[in-house]
Design a protein around this nucleic acid. Sequence first.
DNA 1: CTGAAAGCGCTTACAG
DNA 2: CTGAAAGCGCTTACAG
Lengths: 348, 348
Amino acid sequence: MASIKDVAAAAGVSVATVSRVLNDHPSVSADARTRVRAAVEELGYRPNVVARSLRTDETRTLGLVISDVVNPYFADLARSVEEEARALGYSVIIGNADERPDLQDHHVRTLLDRRIDGLLVSPTDGGSPLMLNAAREGTPMVFVDRWIPGVDVPVVRADGRAAVHDLVAHLHALGHRRLAIIAGPAATTTGSERVEAFRAALGEYGLPLPDAYTGQGDFQAESGRRATERFLDLAEPPEVVFAADNLMALGALDAIRARGLRIPDDIALAAFDDIPWFTHTDPAITAISQPTAELGRSAVRALVDRVEGRTARSVTLPARLVVRRSCGEPSAAHSPTARPSSPRRSTP
Amino acid sequence: MASIKDVAAAAGVSVATVSRVLNDHPSVSADARTRVRAAVEELGYRPNVVARSLRTDETRTLGLVISDVVNPYFADLARSVEEEARALGYSVIIGNADERPDLQDHHVRTLLDRRIDGLLVSPTDGGSPLMLNAAREGTPMVFVDRWIPGVDVPVVRADGRAAVHDLVAHLHALGHRRLAIIAGPAATTTGSERVEAFRAALGEYGLPLPDAYTGQGDFQAESGRRATERFLDLAEPPEVVFAADNLMALGALDAIRARGLRIPDDIALAAFDDIPWFTHTDPAITAISQPTAELGRSAVRALVDRVEGRTARSVTLPARLVVRRSCGEPSAAHSPTARPSSPRRSTP
DNA sequence: CTGAAAGCGCTTACAG
DNA sequence: CTGAAAGCGCTTACAG
């Protein structure tokens, strides 16, 4: 590969001049500038960003550690993060933690070793010493979706409290009284907050949230399946299962289907996170939708603010309830928007 | 951040010795080794991989340019690629082309600028000069899923020919005669191959594939929706729509649902790519399943072989048909495995 | 406006 | 076994 020396030789100038042209430094004669440009073109020269980074101590790269790329919510988040970063002149390197703290640590370490300029993380747990240290020692960092309490790092997330309340109101109106939740890991904020919001909303309707109706999941499909099976094994199973993310909802669907039960007749289902497939499941799934793309963009903007020396602020965006049919049919009076011709297969 | 100099000073040795310890070079005294190890620990020293890369001219990093992270198939592929790479001691940087040749080029360029050791790509088009040049000039490269004919690069992919044939046989047995396909971009191999396989299989049954039944999509949901609408507007619409990937199947579902049509009664649907949600749509979708994780692993192994100077071979794995209910109910005689209690909602 | 030179943090042949 | 030194490809204060 051609190096800056080759370009300098071809253009008949010093490497310093080549560098100045490359970096749009003003004090270069028009003549030198055109000769360098020609040489660059001629040789197909591309600056070595590894060398540049070593010298300038900046990589124009952001790290993104997410809990699970295969989760459509995080895939979407990753996409918008990359998009906004690109618009601001940064690349992003994604680390997929797969909901495993050890893998998360691996990626944080690798990213730090690469000297990324800033780190976006959606923590899988309460934070390893490595991550907490990095934050304390001033690595520009922003939490997105999930965060770690007590750490002085801006947080960009959706607040699902109101939407969870709306969901419980919806369920209550449909006559449901025995409501269960499949929670995420208590070590994650989204894991605990969603249960708390659910419990609080139930409280307002005078409904309890017994331990037996609180399934412990890990945001992965398999845990949703297991938790749902335990619910169904109960002497008095819940009337509704609320999965705290879309993958656990998928697992719940698997479990329900395996028993040959019907939704919502035998059991109702709702999920946190909305994804395109929820429209097409049998029946369509009532879900709480997050402004995912906007979260990604805001998180990048906050991080880049920190990287470039400005101050970054936390951002909280609202989530909202999207009512579909998986919790039961609203009576006609309550649902002026129900589509009368909504297509359903009938069994012979 | 502590540098190798700080470690050397703390351990009372030269930086050369520190480097040797770090790289497990044999000729270091046990004494020096322990002192260096202690200093590393003490200072929390992490080698600067940017500097190391500049010096050694290797980054232990692989680039992966995929067409769309939000496509569950590619998300899955990315996951297995990262997993295998990690096992072999490499990091991977993902570039998301979003099915756009310009974005693909952007990522290839960025990745090359970063001096990645090797490039895994699932090309969105016939290949830009940039990519073709890189391949010609010896950048270790492997194509995965899709490839570019005439370029001397190993290809790791699934062959869907037999599965498409099985699908057509299945459709024919169910009595369907008017079969349509939503193809991917003709510039991609998977775009053209799947239509060709479909056409060939139809031919064996004496069925034509009229132009009107060949929708042009781009592997994204929206194009599947539009193509399906055009099919439904036909004086004689097809009895079956075969979407060449899972996102276009999602779009097809949207279009079908918007018209209030029932699957498979009004129109049947099948898809290339199998994803977990296909089990839970209404009805479950018949699909062609690729060995995604194995494709990712094989691709990484092939690429690392090239990177480390061994020769890499192309790998072709079979895809297989997974029959579900979206193309019609097989008659009892043909489906000994049909679950009699399969749950379905009935309309009042 | 321009170039020689120092230096970013490593690795590695070379000499001892 | 060990260290001094060169060099990877850049950028940038410094001097002119």
